[in-house]
Nucleic acid binder design. Structure first.
Length: 271
DNA sequence: AAAAGCCCCTGGATGC
DNA sequence: TGCATCCAGGGGCTTT
């Protein structure tokens, strides 16, 4: 479900409010992707210093340790002074004196992991291999082009892999490639310097725009205070199979790459 | 080293 | 209405 814009929109919606909060209660329900790594009760008494993001991970800095949160395909957070009674798909809760943080995740591909610090082996295993932040200052066209040249796989899958640039999931990979006019099946290594620069700009544009409108809400996504995104009204190709391209009118096509659907315009994305 | 598949899990949409 | 099948915003792990 959530890609970078949704995760960042979620972070922005509660980071300032929870910061400084003292943990009064902590609860873990059904198992998520991995075990927490400590008895959940030991979180009580600690403090939440702040919330950062790395790729699609949320990093809750505690006075003692670090809590890594991942929303997987279907996860979302809620944060409020009071929340309705827990439902079947609520799996984690952190009650602080600033409010209650709750993770809802029907498919349970998400995760909550505690580590003593970001340099701990468990944290490093999850974070170290990640590519650069697409909206950060070190995402640069030249280095991006150089990294693409080393990869022969299809550009769509290279984007999705997250090891060159993070945060681009299935929606925004298709959208960025459309904006850049690049066929999703093209080998990354065969993308010219100017086209790589165009793709670089497209990734920033589409993620930046999606974040600005609160992300994409296909089904249930909303940020931690219940606000839905609006980027679904602006998608050019994702989920628009068989509909006319907004630029040229050609019918949008779907194909399957590595178990995931890819959408593109055969005319705007010729090669 | 990179690439390709597999799989975790639940719910909604579609088809018979 | 009931049941089977397919599909879904991710990504770590194993195998080629």
């Amino acid at each position: 479900m959530p890609e970078l814009p949704e995760v960042e929109a979620t972070r922005l919606s509660f980071a300032d409010r929870i910061a400084g909060g003292r943990i009064e209660d902590a609860w873990l329900g059904k198992a998520l992707r991995w075990p927490l790594g400590m008895p959940v009760g030991q979180l009580v008494g600690g403090r939440v210093l702040g919330v950062r993001r790395r790729g699609k991970y949320l990093l809750l800095d505690l006075d003692k340790g670090l809590l890594l949160l991942h929303l997987g395909m279907s996860g979302s957070l809620s944060f409020a002074p009071h929340l309705p009674p827990r439902g079947a798909h609520d799996h984690f809760e952190l009650a602080t004196d600033r409010g209650i943080l709750r993770l809802n995740d029907p498919r349970r591909f998400g995760a909550v992991v505690w580590t003593p610090s970001q340099s701990d082996a468990r944290a490093r295993k999850l974070l170290d291999g990640l590519g650069v932040e697409p909206l950060g200052a070190d995402f640069l066209p030249e280095a991006f082009h150089a990294a693409l040249r080393a990869r022969k796989a299809a550009i769509k899958q290279v984007l999705l892999s997250g090891d060159i640039v993070v945060g681009v999931g299935n929606i925004y990979a298709s959208e960025a490639l459309f904006l850049a006019g690049i066929r999703p099946t093209l080998s990354a290594a065969r993308i010219s310097r100017p086209r790589a620069a165009r793709l670089h700009a497209a990734i920033r544009e589409v993620l930046g725009r999606a974040l600005a409108v609160g992300g994409t809400t296909l089904r249930n996504y909303s940020n931690a205070v219940g606000e839905r995104g609006n980027f679904q009204f602006e998608v050019a190709v994702y989920g628009r199979s068989g509909k006319p391209c907004r630029v040229c009118g050609t019918l949008i096509k779907t194909l399957r790459q590595g178990q995931r659907a890819t959408f593109y315009c055969p005319r705007c994305q010729k090669t």
